[in-house]
């Protein structure tokens, strides 16, 4: 591809703002603010990676690249997960930034180390931990919790595909109720953990959930989280066509449905000396059709889910979120 033919817009990067009216306004960046001056010379995730087609993790890495721009010095820690298999074989890599592969449970600890050296040397480097749900909800929980408690200067991004995808699809504590995995053949019989609630309970400066169907909101959050100091936690629902037994092309739409139905709340929680502020970034339409088709279009829910029960759960969750949001 000849880079000379790429259009670049000389305008400075715009301030991404989340939708002002409602969650439906998702037309991504009609002003064409991708591929402009200020983009990274190399994307965070290079083509030639071995992620499956339609992988949600790839999307969020691309947006992270966009949000960071060329000015931000980044280092990334990735524990055992698809994310550390995707770069391919030594010494080549599909990552266009410095990446450290950590042991499964250690992302937040290794990240802490990188961040401390960076701080000691005024490197002005932003350290990102990029982990799956297994490395976050399960094996990495203690490490993550401790790093959050210490308020390390880390941006922790959990791309949650609700499954141990790298090992072929076993249940994790992020697997939702009813999902069939290779270790829950009749569908999982317990709910997933509420990681955003868990992390915000650490009173860290910033906790947010990101939808890959809502680029404006997500880019704004990524930029905000990159700029902040202290521990920031971002939760991204990441479609896994292989594990979800869904069409690769429909991943974005699945996330959109999960947002529209209220199943996946798009919120952010900020903590400062005054206290906690919970903001609902995208108002769900509580769309029943979206909820139903969300489950129907994924083979992992082939054993059926109890929609009324799930709806009650969604309502309970939103009731408490609204209480916390004060509206």
């Amino acid at each position: 591809m000849n880079s000379d033919t790429i259009k670049t817009n000389v305008n400075p990067l715009p301030e991404y703002s989340s939708c002002s009216t409602c969650g439906i306004n998702n037309e991504p960046m009609l002003d064409g603010n991708m591929q402009r001056e200020g983009d990274r010379n190399e994307p965070i995730l290079r083509p030639g990676n071995t992620n499956c087609g339609g992988c949600g993790m790839s999307v969020i890495l691309n947006w992270l690249s966009l949000a960071a721009g060329s000015e931000t010095r980044l280092q990334m820690v990735i524990p055992a997960c698809c994310g550390i298999v995707t770069p391919g074989k030594f010494p080549n890599s599909a990552y266009g930034l410095p990446v450290v592969a950590s042991t499964f449970a250690s992302a937040a600890a290794v990240g802490t180390g990188l961040a401390h050296t960076a701080e000691l040397n005024n490197d002005n480097t932003r350290v990102i931990c990029f982990a799956g749900d297994g490395g976050t909800y399960d094996i990495g929980m203690a490490t993550l919790s401790a790093a959050a408690e210490r308020n390390e200067d880390l941006l922790y991004i959990c791309y949650d595909n609700e499954i141990y995808g790298n090992t072929g699809g076993q249940r994790s504590s992020a697997t939702p109720l009813g999902a069939v995995t290779t270790t829950t053949q009749f569908g999982k019989d317990v709910n997933k953990k509420d990681i955003v609630a868990i992390m915000s309970a650490h009173r860290i400066p910033y906790t947010a959930s990101l939808s890959i169907a809502h680029p404006n909101d997500s880019l704004a959050k990524l930029k905000k989280a990159l700029a902040m100091k202290g521990f920031r936690f971002l939760h991204v629902l990441s479609p896994c066509p292989t594990g979800w037994k869904s069409e690769p092309s429909e991943g974005i739409e699945l996330v959109r449905k999960s947002v529209k139905s209220g199943l996946f709340p798009i919120i952010e929680i900020e903590n400062d000396e005054v206290g906690e502020t919970l903001t609902i970034n995208i108002e769900p339409e509580m769309c029943e059709e979206s909820l139903r088709t969300y489950f129907e279009s994924q083979g992992r829910f082939k054993r059926g889910v109890d929609i009324p029960e799930i709806t009650r759960g969604i309502e309970r969750n939103w009731k408490s979120l609204r209480l916390r949001a004060g509206k």
Binding site: A108, G113, L114, T117, E119, A142
Partner: peptide, 26 residues
């Protein structure tokens, strides 16, 4: 001077922090 000792939650993380700091040159 120019030192940072992190009080972590486990030996596993203690070594994790060492790995991170060592990899970044400390």
């Amino acid at each position: 001077e120019k030192g940072s000792v992190v009080r972590v939650e486990s030996e596993h993380s203690a070594m994790g922090v060492c790995i991170g700091m060592a990899l970044s040159g400390a």
